[in-house]
Simulated assay, not measured.
Amino acid sequence: MNNNQLGTKPHYRLLDGLRGVAAIIVVCFHLTEPLASSHLDNIINHGYLAVDFFFLLSGFVIGYAYDDRWGQLTIGSFLRRRFERLQPLVVLGMTLGAIGFYYTDSTIWPLIHTVPVWKLLLVMLIGYTLLPIPLSMDIRGWQEMHPLNSVSWSLFFEYIVNILYALGLRKLSNKALACFVVLTGVVLLHFAVTNPNGDVTGGWTLNAEHMRIGIIRTLFPFFAGLLLSRISRPVSISHAFFWCSLLVVIVLLMPRIGGADYRWMNGLYEAFCIILVFPFIVYIGASGVVHSQREAKLCHFLGNLSYPLYTTHYVLVYFYVAWVSNHKGITVWQAWPYALLTFSGAIVLAYGSLRLYDEPVRAWLRKKLK
């Protein structure tokens, strides 16, 4: 059975829109992050939780789209579909990151001066596969598994849970899946409240600690979303997009809780959001009704923009971070015009990437990978 014979199911429009809202907040988080002295005083303090929200959305959508199709679907055809969806923008993000690498010169990245072109190209080619590079090949100095496009670490874990789902976890009964979700939720809660940092951040470095964090952050939300897609019975809820968007904004913009003395309180807040609030938001979003053509167009636009915005924006953020680091002591009010310019450029870049590259390449791949 090829991909075209399976076709596609109707999208949850409101969930598409919520993905876009979260992606925009991710960009804003990365623009305010270099202006903060630590996670304790970042203006958009919990913006990184958008990644955990993406994982939950992904599990819900994967379950909805594929759970009842495995009589017609093979593991290979499922993975081809995921490859078609994810990989073109992975390649673009790495390529743009390589093009801009030597121009993001700053004292915070001293390694840039020492990186030969052949090593840059090798890291880019490895990045195309999403395989993480070892610390010995770090070319930026931030210990990222993908130093040309930092955010690609989450796509690495996205592939991992997609493969786990396809290879066998999709066969779990609802009861067994619920037990698995509870177990991974307990592990997530324990990590969040005992982590010395007081948060769930991590996953972007190829070492034991970050790999453990990445797995913890991925397993619960993805398979909780899968379980939710199986057992939820959506009802008609009015103005769901507004209320869900407001909840997403509140959760991700919430100031740090507990300060430096009671870090566990912030970890508890983040675990609460991932384990309870995010599934609630997804359920309400899946139950929502689109009330107007304007709302439908907005959700469609935000949904289409979300993935290219997420995968390409950090290419521009590298330039912005370099500029901030070269102007020590700059305030938010001094930096906002440059932040706004970077944000606007990220939107334009994402939309151009979608229309001029992602959509044509995916259409070509669908024909070639039948």
Rank of each mutant, 00 (worst) to 15 (best):
S38V: 08
S38W: 07
S38I: 11
L40M: 07
L40E: 11
N42T: 09
I44F: 14
I44D: 07
I44P: 09
I44N: 05
N45H: 09
H46G: 06
G47K: 03
L49K: 08
L49P: 10
A50K: 10
A50P: 05
F53K: 06
F53N: 01
F54L: 13
L56P: 05
L56K: 10
L56D: 04
L57K: 02
L57R: 01
G59W: 11
G59L: 15
G59T: 08
F60P: 03
I62A: 15
I62H: 06
G63K: 09
D68F: 03
D68T: 13
G71C: 01
G71Y: 02
Q72Y: 08
L73W: 07
L73N: 10
L73Y: 08
T74E: 11
T74I: 08
T74S: 13
T74N: 10
I75Q: 09
G76E: 11
L79K: 03
L79N: 06
R80E: 08
R80Y: 07
R82H: 09
F83L: 12
L86Y: 01
Q87T: 07
Q87G: 00
P88V: 01
P88E: 08
P88Y: 04
L89W: 06
L89C: 11
V90N: 02
V91C: 04
G93Q: 05
G93K: 04
G93S: 15
M94Y: 12
M94H: 15
M94K: 07
T95F: 15
T95Q: 01
L96I: 12
L96F: 01
G97R: 00
G97M: 00
G97Q: 02
Y102G: 04
Y103E: 07
Y103N: 10
D105Y: 04
D105A: 14
D105N: 09
D105G: 04
S106F: 10
S106D: 10
I108M: 07
W109V: 08
W109H: 13
P110V: 05
P110N: 12
L111I: 03
L111D: 00
L111G: 00
I112C: 03
H113T: 15
V115I: 13
V115Q: 07
P116E: 11
P116F: 15
V117W: 14
K119T: 15
L121Q: 01
L121W: 06
L121V: 15
L122I: 07
V123D: 00
L125S: 10
L125A: 15
I126Q: 09
G127R: 08
G127L: 10
Y128V: 03
T129P: 04
L130R: 03
P132L: 09
P132F: 11
I133G: 02
S136N: 09
M137Y: 10
D138W: 03
D138R: 00
I139A: 00
I139T: 00
R140G: 07
G141Q: 13
W142Y: 12
Q143R: 08
Q143F: 05
Q143V: 04
E144D: 14
M145D: 00
M145C: 06
M145K: 05
